[in-house]
Design a protein around this nucleic acid. Sequence first.
DNA 1: TCCGCGACCGATACTGTATAACATATCGTC
DNA 2: GACGATATGTTATACAGTATCGGTCGCGGA
Lengths: 154, 154
Amino acid sequence: MHDHDLCIAEAMARAQRRCRADGLHLTPVRRRVLEILLEEHRAMGAYEILDRLRAEGLGSQPPVAYRALDFLMKHGFVHRIETLNAFVACTERPGSADSHVPGFLICRTCRRVIETCVDTGGGRLETAAAGAGFAIEHAIREAAGRCADCRSAA
Amino acid sequence: MHDHDLCIAEAMARAQRRCRADGLHLTPVRRRVLEILLEEHRAMGAYEILDRLRAEGLGSQPPVAYRALDFLMKHGFVHRIETLNAFVACTERPGSADSHVPGFLICRTCRRVIETCVDTGGGRLETAAAGAGFAIEHAIREAAGRCADCRSAA
DNA sequence: TCCGCGACCGATACTGTATAACATATCGTC
DNA sequence: GACGATATGTTATACAGTATCGGTCGCGGA
């Protein structure tokens, strides 16, 4: 069992350092959205995040949340889970400059997300793309199922 | 250049045969939705499809389109594109009993979709899942970019 | 015959997701 | 102090998806 508070504190410190180093502004809203996602440690919908912000007086309209999420995604602190239309904090090389190609294992019961680095390379999709003259700009891999905890709980 | 009308006719005939063989009901709404997707040959949103149905007097409320799409997806005639929240007709072994694992190359300009069969196997995501005790139930692979036509047009 | 059953369709209403457009504020720089 | 760049606030609206109720039609069994 890991110390989740410590884990969050470290992640926030890392984010802070990265922003300072690259001249990015980790404003209160952006900072808090990242914290919320780290605390929950699961995929959250934009409106669920927005509710939190509203409760804390940090903005109440959808664009507030979406703009913060866009910033965090653009710089690699957060990933979007397409199959859930939701967002998770990056746990694998967060904020790394080389935007790694992540793969996600998404538990349909607890919405916890395991992030793995699958990188790219001579996969079949890449081969097919090359053959068709298709230029891949962004690839995703997501798998839905049930995590070990939820399976043993059942 | 292929004969698109013929291609559609063949796909519809195949669907018809498959439904007859398996006791599935290819009702007018379901039939027309599949036809529309085959005609357009690109990813379409549910509401765009619904507009067509409405214009043809085949139903005007969201559930009509979603029920038809659910049926077509369940039986492998149509795939959902998660990154677009949209749908395409299956071009690779449509309606095949073994629900193949498809990969998609999605052009962000024309929304045309190239479907490839990537199957599964000892990929990194599967390895990570096995290691974490995660049971994968459904996996997707999608890549956004630009197709050969759109690239040469630019 | 008629009753029930299941599959499909129709319609209302609602929740959730996402963005456009415009106004305001803040800050460093010239 | 004026300016541009960046971030936030606000309104409104479009798009996506679901819950729920009711109607119709065909079909098999009492």
